[in-house]
Deep mutational scan, measured.
Amino acid sequence: MALNTPQITPTKKITVRAIGEELPRGDYQRCPQCDMLFSLPEINSHQSAYCPRCQAKIRDGRDWSLTRLAAMAFTMLLLMPFAWGEPLLHIWLLGIRIDANVMQGIWQMTKQGDAITGSMVFFCVIGAPLILVTSIAYLWFGNRLGMNLRPVLLMLERLKEWVMLDIYLVGIGVASIKVQDYAHIQAGVGLFSFVALVILTTVTLSHLNVEELWERFYPQRPATRRDEKLRVCLGCHFTGYPDQRGRCPRCHIPLRLRRRHSLQKCWAALLASIVLLLPANLLPISIIYLNGGRQEDTILSGIMSLASSNIAVAGIVFIASILVPFTKVIVMFTLLLSIHFKCQQGLRTRILLLRMVTWIGRWSMLDLFVISLTMSLINRDQILAFTMGPAAFYFGAAVILTILAVEWLDSRLLWDAHESGNARFDD
């Protein structure tokens, strides 16, 4: 018995066209964080690309023209004298008006014999932002004059995390709450300039795509075929072959399989920071003279006294001054041990922890910024005066060393310790 099946006739004509040209192939790229070699397709503007294995951002879609970056830099340069030299806060102490600005706080630190601690604050609040705007201006002028731009481009990517104007702005709020127990506070004209400078700096850093600047100024022929001998440069993120001198053909720094002496430098910085954190938390970090009496505060006791007036601000200072430094030390110690013992479990967790400490590390400088600003506000000789204690130097040095330890660690070593050939990683 035959089955009668109805015929289905399409209502619209289906047209099949042959592909007349070869589909576009992607360029081969190595991930600078996990060293995976993959094919990167062509990316349009405002599109980002991520590593298929570790999800690290390979290409950032946010990109401004150099002219727009230069305009932002010149605007920031105009704001800087007002943000640093004009009063941020006014207080009335014992019937006398006192003005506080950024430069005055750094000068008070240096004047009291601790120039190293003052230079830490100076670099993060004044030096690094000033280098940022002058570097962008150098790129703008240098591109037109045919100057060598490689050193500036190499420095810009590392400079971003040292620009800490946003953290200093939080420190202004913390210092205001600490001082309000002794005097009446009012915002100064410099505060508005400083807030504007923070906003412009944040926007500029978020749109400063150094890798795209490398592509514009020093374009290189990408690798179009897969080759395990391809290496990625950690300076400019170019994937290719080393030249005859073993250097990256684009930025001219040595092109090595792994960062040289990464573990040794990381261990040295980490152990030194552990040693410095002990006096930083045991010795007094601030000293207040009130009517001839002397009151010393460690980091913890200062947080407890701050909690009596504002528990939320005390929580912020606790996280930045105690929780973050010790968390960074514990995480980095764990990561280094996992590399030495070739741990194969929990790779995803370790990668996330490394990215976390990379982002939060700079916030530990908050305590030094609060001390710097408070020193310029309260300084009335023996009637009422505020000065920093010996722990300030140890704390600042420990924070900087932990930042350097994270920067010096080559994250690809975590993958080397893991089993080879993993296309995915999980716990």
Rank of each mutant, 00 (worst) to 15 (best):
Q382Y: 14
I274T: 13
R380S: 01
L414C: 10
L89F: 03
G389P: 01
I311L: 14
M147Y: 04
P151D: 04
I19S: 09
V189C: 12
V275G: 08
L290K: 01
A175S: 13
Q47H: 04
G95E: 01
G389K: 01
S420M: 11
C34D: 01
M375Y: 02
A56C: 06
I106L: 06
H340C: 10
I322D: 13
A397D: 08
S305I: 09
L169E: 02
F318M: 09
S48W: 15
C124F: 15
L149G: 10
R30A: 07
R53L: 08
F341C: 13
N379R: 12
S119E: 02
I43D: 09
R250P: 01
L149Q: 12
R245H: 10
Q104C: 07
V275C: 11
Q186M: 14
G171L: 00
Q344E: 09
A175R: 01
A56R: 09
G188E: 13
I43Y: 10
I322K: 03
D99Y: 04
G188T: 07
R25P: 08
L404Y: 04
R225S: 14
P32R: 10
A183T: 04
A307P: 02
T75Q: 07
V16G: 07
L271T: 13
N291V: 15
L353I: 15
A183Q: 00
T117F: 02
V329K: 08
Y241R: 12
R226D: 14
L276Q: 11
R30L: 08
A49L: 07
D99H: 09
Q108H: 13
N281P: 02
P6K: 08
R247K: 07
M80I: 06
G171F: 00
G389D: 01
N143P: 12
A115G: 04
A100F: 01
M36E: 12
F395Q: 01
L208Y: 11
V232G: 15
R53C: 09
L290I: 12
M72I: 05
K13F: 07
A405K: 01
S39N: 08
T15P: 07
P325E: 00
L353K: 10
C124I: 03
T298F: 07
A83F: 02
I285R: 00
V210T: 14
L413P: 06
V163E: 09
R350P: 09
S309Q: 06
L165Y: 06
H252W: 04
L139Y: 03
L191A: 12
C266P: 09
C124A: 09
A70L: 14
T9V: 06
F425Q: 14
E86Y: 01
A70D: 04
G142S: 05
L368R: 00
Q7C: 05
M120R: 01
P129V: 06
T239V: 12
L352H: 10
S376P: 02
I185M: 15
I131Y: 01
F395Y: 10
A49M: 08
A70C: 12
A175H: 01
A2G: 05
L255V: 05
S364K: 01
V198H: 15
S176P: 02
M332P: 06
P41L: 06
I403M: 13
A307S: 13
V121L: 08
H207C: 15
G361C: 08
R380K: 02
F141Y: 01
A137M: 11
L347Y: 13
S420Y: 07
N291A: 15
V331D: 01
I351C: 11
D297F: 02
N281Y: 04
L130H: 10
V210K: 15
T15D: 05
S193R: 02
V125C: 09
I43R: 10
R53Q: 10
L69G: 08
T224E: 14
Q180N: 11
R144M: 14
L130Y: 07
C236A: 00
A405D: 02
L165P: 15
R247A: 12
F217T: 15
C233G: 00
Q344P: 14
L384K: 00
W415S: 09
Q29F: 06
R231P: 07
A49D: 10
C251W: 00
Y241K: 13
I316L: 07
W84I: 08
L93Y: 01
K229W: 11
V406L: 10
M356G: 11
I106W: 01
H261D: 09
T110V: 08
T239L: 11
V203L: 14
L282E: 10
Q180H: 11
L23F: 06
V399N: 05
L290N: 01
Q112Y: 09
E42T: 06
I316R: 00
Q344M: 13
Y241G: 14
P10H: 09
I360Y: 08
I98N: 03
Q220I: 12
D426S: 06
M375I: 04
S364I: 00
E161D: 13
A70W: 13
F393M: 14
V174S: 12
A73C: 08
A100E: 05
E42A: 06
I400A: 04
V324Q: 08
P52I: 06
M375S: 14
I126C: 11
Y394M: 02
A405N: 03
Y394D: 11
P24H: 08
M147N: 03
G171S: 15
L156V: 11
V203W: 09
G85Q: 09
G240L: 07
S193G: 13
G302Y: 00
L352C: 10
L154D: 02
T298V: 13
T110M: 03
I403H: 02
N422Q: 06
I378P: 00
T67N: 08
V16W: 07
A307V: 12
A405M: 01
M304L: 08
M36K: 07
I126N: 11
M103R: 03
W359R: 14
Y138F: 13
L213Q: 11
G85K: 10
A18I: 01
L409A: 04
K342Q: 12
L276A: 14
P242M: 13
N422K: 11
Q29T: 05
N291G: 13
G113V: 09
W415V: 07
S262F: 08
W408N: 04
L353E: 05
A18C: 07
I285V: 11
T334I: 13
L89K: 03
A18T: 07
I303Y: 06
D426H: 13
L153D: 00
P129F: 04
Q33P: 06
P242I: 12
N101F: 02
R348A: 13
H90W: 02
P10E: 07
P10S: 06
L89T: 07
M304G: 14
L208Q: 14
M375L: 06
E86I: 03
D381Q: 06
M109F: 05
E407L: 10
R25S: 10
V125F: 11
N148P: 07
D243H: 13
L213P: 08
M147Q: 05
R150D: 04
M1G: 00
I91H: 02
I371M: 03
I199T: 14
A320I: 15
R250S: 13
C233A: 00
A71D: 01
G246W: 11
R362G: 01
M72N: 06
T224F: 13
S286N: 00
Y28M: 10
A272Q: 02
P32M: 05
P52D: 04
F217M: 15
M375R: 05
I287R: 10
V152K: 01
F74G: 09
C236G: 01
I322W: 09
G396H: 01
G188C: 09
R53Y: 06
L230P: 12
S262D: 08
T327Y: 12
Y28E: 08
S176E: 08
G396F: 03
S301K: 07
G235T: 04
N379I: 03
S305P: 02
M72Y: 03
F369S: 05
I285W: 00
V232L: 14
R259I: 07
R424D: 09
R247W: 14
R362M: 03
S372G: 15
S48H: 13
L66W: 05
V406C: 08
T11Y: 06
L413F: 11
A307Q: 14
F123A: 01
A49W: 10
F369A: 03
I172F: 07
A280F: 02
D227W: 14
L277Y: 01
V163N: 05
S411M: 06
C51G: 09
Y182D: 05
D99V: 05
A115E: 15
G85D: 07
G361S: 09
P6T: 04
G389S: 02
I299F: 11
L401W: 07
L290E: 00
S321R: 02
M72Q: 07
A397L: 04
